[in-house]
């Protein structure tokens, strides 16, 4: 079951986004002065990669098979190892370059980013077969908001920076990771896919957004 489920995954998107994230993060590792700008972008790309793991172009067929949503989500969650490994590679490169980052907080941010992308995809997957494009875009915009808009960074940070007066990213990620775990559990196990009257064509590829 594991192999066929994984074979059906959106691997080009997951691997492609993870690869681009490694390039962006690698530049952040190579240029320490740019790390606080490029590593958040790298993590946002990994979150987008996580959002694509649940994409199922044949959802109209797959969703009525005896394999339940819990089992399918568990199997697809294995694909999260790709963005997680890419993030770990970037952090390892940064550590080897001798960067002085708060590693515990950065690792927490990496896990949180990936889990957030996956959790939102789980929730949206209950409505559409391919949540990746919509969720990926939304997650990237939300995660990059503190980097793009300083007004937002005064209140919330998604990446730890050495600013004693600024908000801590840990205070954001711990509750958010807990919320993501609950969202994944509820969306995969508790909710049945809602049957929308006449929604069959909406879920087809290309018309879902």
């Amino acid at each position: 079951m594991l192999i066929p489920m994984l074979r059906a995954g959106a691997w080009p998107a997951v691997a492609g986004l993870s690869g681009v994230a490694v390039v962006v993060g690698g530049c952040g590792a190579a240029f320490p002065a740019a790390a606080t700008l490029l590593l958040p972008a790298c993590f946002a790309l990994l979150a987008a990669a996580a959002a694509f793991t649940l994409d199922e172009p044949a959802s109209l067929v797959v969703d009525v098979t005896p394999t339940g949503p819990v089992r399918r989500t568990q199997l697809r969650a294995v694909a999260l190892l790709a963005p997680l490994a890419a993030g770990a590679l970037v952090l390892l490169a940064a550590a080897l370059r001798g960067q002085a980052l708060p590693w515990a907080a950065v690792s927490l941010a990496l896990a949180g980013n990936i889990l957030l992308g996956f959790a939102v995809a789980c929730v949206v997957r209950t409505r559409i077969g391919e949540p990746g494009p919509v969720v990926g875009t939304a997650v990237v915009l939300v995660l990059m908001a503190p980097a793009l808009v300083p007004h937002v960074a005064r209140w919330v940070r998604t990446f730890p920076v050495s600013d004693p007066g600024g908000p801590s990213s840990d205070r954001l990620w711990w509750p958010l990771i807990a919320a993501c775990a609950v969202a994944i559990a509820v969306s995969a196990g508790g909710l049945r896919r809602r049957a929308w009257p006449g929604s069959g064509t909406r879920r087809h590829r290309g018309l879902s957004y």
């Binding site: 080009p12 998107a13 492609g16 986004l17 681009v20 962006v24 530049c27 700008l37 490029l38 972008a41 946002a44 790309l45 987008a48 694509f52 990746g132 494009p133 990926g136 875009t137 990237v140 915009l141 990059m144 980097a147 793009l148 957004y209």
Partner: peptide
């Protein structure tokens, strides 16, 4: 690729 726009956005930003 449906996520090309945000990838390019992040690449230009980076």
């Amino acid at each position: 690729f449906p996520g090309a726009a945000f990838v390019l956005f992040l690449l230009i930003y980076g």
